[in-house]
Amino acid sequence: MTIPILYSLRQCPYAMRARLAILYAGQTVVLRDVDMMNKPKEMLSISPKGTVPVLHFEDTVIEESVDVMLWTLTQSDPRNLLYHHDLLQLPLMLDLIQKSDSEFVQILQKYRAASRYHDDNEMEYRDKCVEWLSDIEERLSKHTFIMGESASIVDYALLPFIRQFSRVDKKWYNIAPLPHLRAWLVRHYNDPIFSKAMTIYPKWNRDAEPVIFG
Rank of each mutant, 00 (worst) to 15 (best):
M37C: 01
L73E: 05
Y156N: 06
L133G: 06
G148F: 08
K49R: 14
T2H: 00
V168H: 03
M93K: 01
P179R: 05
D120R: 11
K99A: 11
W71F: 14
Y83L: 02
E124M: 14
Q164R: 14
V34L: 02
A176D: 13
E58R: 13
Q164M: 15
V34R: 08
C129T: 08
P91Y: 08
P91Q: 08
I153N: 03
D101P: 00
H85G: 12
A114V: 08
K142R: 14
P78W: 12
S8A: 11
Y173V: 03
F194R: 10
L82V: 00
Q89K: 15
T74C: 06
P192Q: 12
G148T: 11
Y14G: 03
M123N: 09
L20Y: 05
A25W: 05
G148C: 10
T2G: 05
R17V: 02
L185N: 06
M147R: 02
I136F: 03
I146H: 04
F145S: 01
Y7G: 06
T2Q: 07
L87P: 00
D33E: 15
S45W: 03
G26A: 13
T60C: 05
E64G: 07
S47W: 03
S152H: 07
T199E: 14
E103K: 08
L87A: 13
E131N: 09
T144W: 00
M1E: 09
K203V: 07
T2V: 14
L81V: 07
K170M: 11
P78R: 13
N38I: 02
A157I: 01
P91F: 10
T2R: 10
T199H: 09
K142H: 14
D207M: 07
C12H: 05
T144V: 09
P13R: 07
V52N: 08
L185E: 12
D33T: 12
S102F: 02
L73V: 07
P53N: 07
Y7K: 10
I107P: 01
T28F: 04
I146S: 06
F161A: 00
N205A: 11
P40S: 11
T199V: 05
L92E: 12
I5L: 10
H188I: 12
K49Y: 06
I200N: 11
S152N: 10
D67L: 08
P48F: 06
D59F: 07
Y24C: 01
F57V: 11
V186M: 08
Q164P: 01
A151L: 12
P78T: 07
I107W: 01
L9A: 11
I146F: 06
I146G: 02
Y111H: 12
M147V: 07
I153C: 02
V54P: 04
L23H: 09
V66F: 01
S76C: 14
A25G: 15
K110A: 11
A114K: 10
E58T: 08
I3F: 04
P40W: 06
P78Q: 09
L73S: 02
